[in-house]
Design a protein around this nucleic acid. Structure first.
Length: 487
RNA sequence: GCCCCCAUCGUCUAGCUCGGCCCAGGACGCCGGAUUCUCAUUCCGGUAACAGGGGUUCAAAUCCCCUUGGGGGUACCA
């Protein structure tokens, strides 16, 4: 397998159906990394030949998502180049012309079989435990029969005439030689009866016209590649190199699917995964940078990219590890940077809060966040008194009267703190515990809940400083009353 | 059913191309501990794998074969 890296042109060719899929990002990432490493061109081509399932919204979502991730293409639907357009629905005329060519040189034939007959055929084949596939009925049609049917306007498809004997093989960069016996390759439909091409024809024609040098796609295409090879041969075209990436898997090892895994790139974005974390994680799913490193940037992947370090086996998509990675990236940023990201990318509603205040809060929550969407959730109590049960005030293994006692005792101390800073508060509270013989945890928990309304919160004294004495005392008083009502 | 791909800790993997340095290394998770006002963070420690069987060889996680397991394909969807 000679890697001719002179003129690398690769493409990501998603179908615009449904939500933008992580698999698209995954395949695009590898195309991108390889192209950029080789100084080549990364193309985005929209494969919308399935008219009923394709949608404009989906196409836009794919482009938006890829751009969000920073996988910018050099040529694509909105970046026209010589071999465009890059949307197959806009190349409609091209395919039938090439289908015609195949008809003329005897590599394809018209098939008038109805879908009903095909379905029945498949059924009996399965029942008889025979391999399924077209039986070649229309291959034997004579010229006059064909003309007659056409005169009667009978709908037909154009099928590839796969050689009855021999075998077809190709070299896969990461899997080596893959061989299929020709009788096992189906006479694939190339042009549907509505005149639209199937994936197979459109794909090969476009890859040729767009001078794609390496076809990098997911493993699920391995079996249809021999059909593509046959097509290149039938046209007399040089074939590109083929590389099949392992499929992303659910926990049960099946192909990743939305029923078993969040699969939409929008979901990851909304949840607040950083693009660098998601990219890094996706890269890890099919490639390793070597040594004992697992954190690396897109740019590092590009510079170190090589197929030797690509893997063949299908990785389970494990959100737990993504969470960890995301946390790593979050912690690696300065509070300032993090806040910028959160504000710019719209993860917070607290946009009219003074930046200085948000920043001081950020310092308290940064280490506690796994995703950006957790920011607002974890700081809500800074801006509003949240409802909570009196029960919540009670420390472990203690009761309501104990809690009331603590709060009562605490009152004077709190009110007496003049300099409402983290340091003085801590000093005052420590002194309070020592003098009164209280255990810290028994004092801090009720206080924490009184101040933050939550048992899990940012560090107490820092939080109190930010809230200010006045607000803290109000909250404290409310807690005391809550306790009294309870008791 | 048939065809194709794959196979190292629960998960992601290094090692396999060029057999010995591997009674298999790292990471996530989990468990335990330290720090600690909660939760996190941070730091220590622990758990856990070469699917099985045959070969080849002085020597195999690494090469070959078989079995098993998993996955994908099998459409006028991509």
């Amino acid at each position: 397998m000679s890697q001719k890296l002179q003129n690398v042109r690769v493409r990501s060719a998603p179908s615009p159906t449904g939500d933008p899929h992580v698999g698209t990002a995954y395949v695009s990432l590898f195309n991108y990394a390889f192209a950029k490493n080789a100084g080549g061109t990364f193309i985005l081509r929209i494969e919308d030949t399935d008219r009923s399932r394709s949608s404009k919204e989906s196409e836009e979502a794919i482009m938006r998502s890829l751009r969000w991730l920073g996988l910018e293409w050099d040529e694509g639907p909105d970046k026209e180049g010589d071999p465009g357009p890059y949307r197959q629905s806009e190349r409609f005329g091209i395919y039938s012309k090439y289908g015609q060519k195949l008809l003329e040189n005897g590599s394809a034939y018209r098939c008038f079989c109805t879908s009903e007959r095909l379905a029945a055929l498949r059924k009996t084949q399965q029942a008889q435990k025979r391999p399924t596939g077209y039986d070649g009925l229309c291959r034997a049609l004579g010229e006059d029969e064909i003309e007659q049917k056409m005169a009667q306007n009978e709908p037909y498809t154009i099928r590839l005439k796969v050689p009855a004997e021999g075998e077809t093989s190709y070299e896969d960069y990461i899997r080596g030689t893959i061989t299929f016996r020709n009788p096992e390759i189906d006479d694939q439909v190339l042009l549907k009866s509505d005149g639209f091409p199937t994936y197979h024809l459109a794909n090969v024609v476009d890859d040729h016209l767009m001078e794609i040098s390496h076809v990098i796609r997911a493993e699920e295409w391995i079996t249809s590649t021999p059909k593509h090879v046959l097509l290149y041969n039938a046209f007399g075209w040089e074939q590109p190199a083929f590389i099949h990436l392992p499929l992303l898997r659910n926990k049960d090892k099946s192909k990743i699917s939305k029923r078993k895994n969040p699969v939409s790139l929008d979901w990851y974005r909304e949840k607040g995964y950083l693009k660098e974390a998601l990219l890094n994680f996706l890269a890890l799913m099919g490639w390793s940078i070597g040594a004992e490193r697992e954190k690396f940037t897109l740019q590092e992947m590009v510079t170190h990219f090589s197929w030797e370090r690509a893997k063949k086996s299908g990785p389970v998509f494990d959100l737990q590890k993504l969470d960890w990675l995301n946390g790593e990236y979050i912690r690696a940023m300065s509070p300032d940077e993090l806040l910028d990201r959160i504000v710019e990318e719209g993860y917070t509603d607290y946009t009219d809060v003074p930046r200085r205040k948000l920043l001081s809060i950020m310092e308290l929550v940064q280490d506690r966040m796994k995703t950006l969407s957790e920011f607002d959730e974890s700081i809500g109590f800074f801006f509003a008194r949240e409802p909570y049960d009196a029960e919540t005030l009670i420390p472990k293994k203690k009761d309501a009267s104990f809690t009331a006692e603590v709060l009562e005792a605490l009152k004077d101390t709190l009110e007496g703190v003049e300099d409402w800073t983290t340091e003085s508060l801590e000093q005052a509270l420590q002194a309070f515990c020592e003098e009164g013989g209280w255990k810290r945890r028994d004092v801090y928990m009720p206080l924490r809940v009184a101040i933050t309304c939550r048992r899990v919160s940012t560090p107490l004294f820092e939080t109190m400083e930010i809230l200010g004495k006045k607000e803290c005392l109000v909250r404290f008083q409310e807690a005391v009353e809550k306790c009294e009502n309870k008791g």
